[in-house]
Design a protein around this nucleic acid. Structure first.
Lengths: 231, 231
DNA sequence: CGGAACATTGACCCATGTCAAGTGTCGTGG
DNA sequence: CCACGACACTTGACATGGGTCAATGTTCCG
C-alpha cells in the first residue's frame, strides 16, 4: 500500500510513538520546544487534563495507564527517550502519564502542531504513521493479555524490550527494567506475585538470569520466542 | 488540541474506523470504488496478504483477528457498515478479516489513496483521526481484557454495542449479535462456555433478556454500566 | 425429517489471585 | 561505617474464577 510505503522504520514496541525521520517542520518545532523536567512518580499529565501539549521524551521513562473506579489499573505502555506521548483526537487526555524515574521531555504546543499540520502536507501522514505504530503495539498487547499464559506474557514482554534494544544498537540479551513489578503486572494483566513467581520459573528453566530484580539477562532468546508464540 | 478539534464524531467502538464526513477526495474515491461481495466465513483478506486495498463496509459484518501458532485467537474487533478496514503502515495485513455474514465492501486501491493523500492535505489528518479512534477502541478493549471479570467484560461488550446503536439513531436497549459465541469469547479473552454461563447469570440478575441467542434486550443500562466500571 | 452447527449446562480441575510472612536493597541519619 | 526504616521483591499456603471435558438442547436449513 502506497501510504504504507511512506512509513519509516515501523517499530512495534508497547505503548509509544517513535519519532523517526520526521517532517522538517516537526523537527524544527521539537528543537525549539521548551524542556520540562518531571520527577519520579510525578505526573506528566492525568486522564481528563486538557491536552494542550504533546511531549517527546528526552531522558527517563513514563508509564501510560488508565484506572477503573475501584483502583484496578491497566498500563497501556511505557514511553522511552525518542517516544512521543499525548497524541490523540480528544480535547482531554485519555490516560495518565506518570514518570517512573526522573525524566525530561520537550513540550510541543498543540497550537504549534496545528500550524505545522496546515502548512506541511507531510505532517498529517507522519501523525498517521505514528498512530498506526501505536495501534500495532496496542494490538500486540491485546493478543498477549487476551490469550497468553503468565509465562508467555512475561516472555513476550522481555522479548519486546530486547527488540527495542536491538533497534537502538544495544545488546539484545541484556534488558533493564526501569519499572516496578507492579507496573509490569498491571501492564500484563497479572499480579505482582505472579510476575515474581514467573520470573523465578524462567530462571529455573535457565531461560533468563536475574542478577538484580531490575536487570535481566536473556540466555536463550530463541526458546523464549518459542514460548511466547505457544510453540 | 487543535488537531483534535478537527475530529468529527469521535466514536469509540471496538475495532473499526468510522468514515464520517471525510475529505472530498476520499468520498469521491469511495463513490467510484468497485463493490465486492464476500460470503459468510469467507476472508476479505488474511494476515500476511499484500495490503493493496482498503475497504469500506457497505453491508454485513467482518471479524478482525490474529492467531497464535497453536490456534488461540484474539479477535481485535468487529467492523460494521460505514467502517473502514485494512489501513496500516505495513506492506502486509497484520490481521485476518473474515465475514461473519454475507457482506459487501467498496475497495479503495492503495495507489489511489496515495494519490489523494498527496493532493489533499486534509486526507492525512483524516487518516490520523481514523487511526486515533481505532487506538482509543483498542485501549478500551485492553482495559477490559486486562482487568475486568467475565461479567464485567460481557457488560462492557453489550454496552459498546448499545452505544453504537445510539449513535446510529437506533434503540439503545436492543442489541443484535451477528457474531457467534466463539467470536465473542475470542474477543473478550473468554471461552464460549464462560460467555454462555455469563449471559445466563446476567439474565438471572434481570439485567438482560435473551429471547434468542443472537438478540439481547438490555433491561437496566445504568446497572450494567455500574457493573462494567467495577462500581 | 434429519443432521450439522451452535449454544447451554454440569462436574471437575488448575492457573492465577489472595492473604500473609519473610527477605533483600537502598537511602538517611547518627 | 553502621543502624534503621521504607519500600520493593520473593515465597508459601490456600481460595477461586474461569478453563476443560462431556453431555444435552436448540435452531436452522437442506
Amino acid at each position: 500500500m502506497s501510504i504504507q510505503s511512506l512509513a519509516i522504520a515501523a517499530a512495534r514496541t508497547p505503548g509509544y510513538y517513535q519519532s523517526s525521520a520526521s517532517s522538517p517542520s516537526l523537527e524544527q518545532n521539537l528543537a525549539r520546544a521548551p524542556l520540562r523536567r518531571v520527577e519520579a512518580k510525578e505526573f506528566l499529565f492525568a486522564e481528563g487534563d486538557t491536552s494542550s501539549y504533546v511531549y517527546r521524551i528526552e531522558t527517563g521513562a513514563i508509564t501510560l495507564y488508565r484506572i477503573l473506579r475501584d483502583g484496578r489499573r491497566q498500563v497501556m505502555g511505557f514511553a522511552y527517550p525518542g517516544d512521543i506521548v499525548g497524541l490523540g483526537i480528544d480535547d482531554a487526555h485519555t490516560m495518565h502519564a506518570q514518570a517512573v524515574k526522573p525524566t525530561q521531555v520537550r513540550c510541543l504546543s498543540a497550537a504549534s502542531l496545528r500550524q505545522s499540520a496546515v502548512t506541511d502536507p507531510a505532517l498529517g501522514l507522519k501523525l498517521y504513521e505514528a498512530m498506526a505504530r501505536e495501534l500495532a503495539a496496542a494490538r500486540d498487547l491485546m493478543l498477549t493479555i487476551g490469550q497468553r499464559s503468565a509465562m508467555e506474557r512475561l516472555a513476550s514482554f522481555l522479548l519486546a524490550l530486547s527488540q527495542r534494544n536491538e533497534r537502538n544498537g544495544q545488546d539484545a540479551s541484556t534488558v533493564e527494567l526501569p519499572m516496578t513489578r507492579t507496573d509490569i503486572g498491571d501492564f500484563l494483566g497479572l499480579t505482582i506475585e505472579t510476575v515474581s513467581r514467573t520470573f523465578t520459573r524462567l530462571k529455573l528453566m535457565q531461560l533468563i538470569e536475574l542478577p538484580h530484580s531490575n536487570h535481566v539477562k536473556l540466555r536463550d532468546i530463541g526458546q523464549l520466542e518459542e514460548l511466547a508464540e505457544g510453540g
